[in-house]
């Protein structure tokens, strides 16, 4: 086996299965809406993949940076822990993105995506990709900074639920709106939405960069919460 194969095993099957599970769960509920006579809701349920995807990616990222049982041994090896963990993180993000991106594109092609975003190439992908980067960044950073994976998962889940609630409040707090991952698209002011996507993605990447820096501090990594 190669290093990539070993790192994907270290990432663990739950992180790889979670995005598929999310897609299947939404398909199930979409089907259920159809069966019980609420077909109008089917597309809304299926389209929820663009919201759920970011949360799934965030928790997969937390799994990728969770503490390593052989950390002391790993720190004594020439290949750095940072490199290995970042490879796992990259795998988690690429896999989640591939599944969510494919599902979004498929729904778009089938005309089932209830989005108000204009029909520009890849515009639908901007609904979930920047939020995924932000939640992955915040979750991974929290997990590594506190050396507690549960803290990372808790923060991702709370931030995701809160972002999908209380829309009026998110809109009213000017300094927080650029970080609102569920900002609705406003056809009257598309630039605001696009700027939001850029800000959200950049903040997510900044969090991932800080995570990478922290992963280079061995004494910090030795003190994991269990």
């Amino acid at each position: 086996m190669t290093a990539l194969a070993f790192e994907s095993r270290r990432l663990g099957w739950p992180a790889l299965v979670a995005p598929l599970f999310a897609v299947l769960a939404l398909c199930f509920f979409g089907l259920l809406s159809q069966v019980i006579g609420a077909p109008a809701q089917t597309d809304r349920v299926l389209s929820a993949i663009v919201q759920v995807g970011s949360m799934v990616g965030g928790i997969a990222a937390v799994s990728a940076v969770a503490s390593d049982p052989a950390i002391e041994l790993r720190l004594s090896l020439p290949r750095s822990v940072r490199r290995s963990v970042l490879l796992r993180l990259l795998l988690a993000l690429l896999w989640s993105s591939a599944v969510i991106g494919f599902a979004t594109e498929l729904l778009h092609e089938l005309g089932r995506l209830t989005s108000e975003i204009p029909d520009a190439p890849l515009a639908d992908q901007l609904e979930w990709l920047p939020p995924l980067l932000l939640l992955a960044g915040v979750g991974a950073l929290t997990a590594v900074a506190t050396r507690a994976a549960t803290a990372g998962a808790g923060v991702v889940a709370a931030a995701w639920v809160l972002s999908n609630l209380l829309s009026q409040l998110w809109s009213s707090v000017t300094w927080l709106t650029p970080l609102w991952i569920a900002l609705p698209f406003d056809p009257a002011d598309p630039a605001r939405w696009y700027w939001n996507r850029i800000t959200v993605a950049l903040v997510g990447m900044a969090c991932l960069a800080i995570t990478a820096v922290l992963l280079g501090r061995p004494e910090h990594l030795l003190a994991a919460e269990r």
């Binding site: 299965v17 599970f21 999310a22 937390v62 889940a157 639920v161």
Partner: peptide, 9 residues
Amino acid sequence: VPLYAVLFT
């Protein structure tokens, strides 16, 4: 646990 976290949320 990670899978439970996703399902629970």
